[in-house]
Design a protein around this nucleic acid. Structure first.
Lengths: 213, 213
DNA sequence: CAGAATTCTAGACCGAGTATAAAATTTGGT
DNA sequence: ACCAAATTTTATACTCGGTCTAGAATTCTG
């Protein structure tokens, strides 16, 4: 019952190796132009083994999803008692940005990442699906807390819409060729603007003057 | 250049016929258990013709998407000058509900519709993708209006989150076995609650007491 | 009715993903 | 160190969605 025997270590290593080999091929030639058979051969492994680790071809590229899902869950679950979800999520996104985390979107690497992503409708579709899974997860956690299924789902969906918009905003600017450092600086305000709208609503009659830093 | 010659009429008829035959098979046996080849044979047509009309198998079932997209676009584009988007969208959804439109979600038929949908991950995935397309469309229209790319995208995503939540709420209750008439009555308040949150935000410090009717 | 344009068809083809059974490897107990 | 059980990997064959091609059938134009 050794949870960390030779077997488990080898599996993790193999998994990483396959994903890395695949990513290399995708970056070089585009997602659709690379077949799973090729990946298997390049990784020195059988096709079945590839599908053994990654149920879909898209998961070879979007393999950080589960980590992200778990991290977002803990942001909500482990926030200080009584703190609004939006507050915790806002803080978390400022931290991502400060740490220059890839998921902040404001980092040089996203250009290559997004290029591959755009090279395949299937990949784009899978990413949208993953965003949907995030919303589902949040809805579940919030429903546990409040018991109000409808409010939980609404909050979860609005929250997800907010964070995907933040991410997409950074990516779009970097794709457009803006200076990464500049984008990174601007994202601070973007995050605050987005969460302000989430918290105060899109309706009229509010004061939206921001002294932009 | 006759836009309505025999050719065009036959094409529309064939398209409807194929979609209807396919839907019948899906309802009877589930989405994944029916192959495109079977659909083609049942419709008395070749496999290529099926893909000629419907680029993906999923589109055979979700073929109202383009209509919905266009309708939502006109809701935003053709709203009274100066009216907030949320107001127009709220009104539209009350109208859908009053007209007992399928897209209100509060109608007997959604049970069968959703059953088929749930029978296939591919179908669910495609629906999520279509919701994403709605958000993209709204973002485009709003960006044209305001010129503020970020605000447009944020509003579009929040708006989409709101309307999908409304729809899903009705569907979930009908799946759960609630009385359709009851759900339909309750949806009036659901729509208003959802748009109230969208307009006023999820933040604290607001009076959320509703006299539920 | 003739010829151009369009649509439909048949058939071969590709790649993702599944099923299965055998081969290779790790594990735990002795 | 060795054996037997459990697990992973492999080879192979298969299904199905989707594309490509060239030609047959149909509709349109004049």
């Amino acid at each position: 019952m050794a949870q960390h025997g030779l077997r488990e270590r080898k599996k993790q290593a193999t998994r990483r190796m396959i994903a890395d080999v695949a990513t290399g091929l995708f970056v070089a030639r585009g997602f659709d132009a690379v077949t799973v058979a090729e990946i298997a051969e390049a990784a020195g492994v059988s096709k079945m083994t590839v599908f053994n680790y990654f149920p879909r071809k898209e998961d070879l590229y979007l393999d950080r999803h589960l980590d992200r899902l778990r991290e977002l869950e803990s942001v909500v679950r482990d926030r200080p008692a009584g703190e609004p979800v939006a507050t915790a999520m806002r803080r978390y996104h400022h931290e991502l940005l400060a740490a220059q985390h890839p998921l902040s979107g404001a980092i040089q690497g996203v250009l290559g990442f997004w290029t591959v992503l755009q090279s395949s409708p299937a990949l784009m579709s899978r990413m949208v699906e993953q965003e949907h899974e995030i919303a589902e997860m949040l809805a579940g956690v919030l429903a546990e807390e409040s018991g109000d299924e409808f409010a939980a789902r609404l909050t979860a969906n609005l929250l997800t819409a907010t964070i995907t918009t933040i991410f997409h905003t950074a990516v779009a600017r970097i794709i457009a060729g803006d200076d990464v450092e500049q984008v990174r600086r601007d994202q601070v305000a973007v995050i605050d603007r987005a969460f302000d709208v989430l918290e105060r609503g899109i309706g009229p009659g509010r004061d939206l003057h921001h002294s932009d830093g």
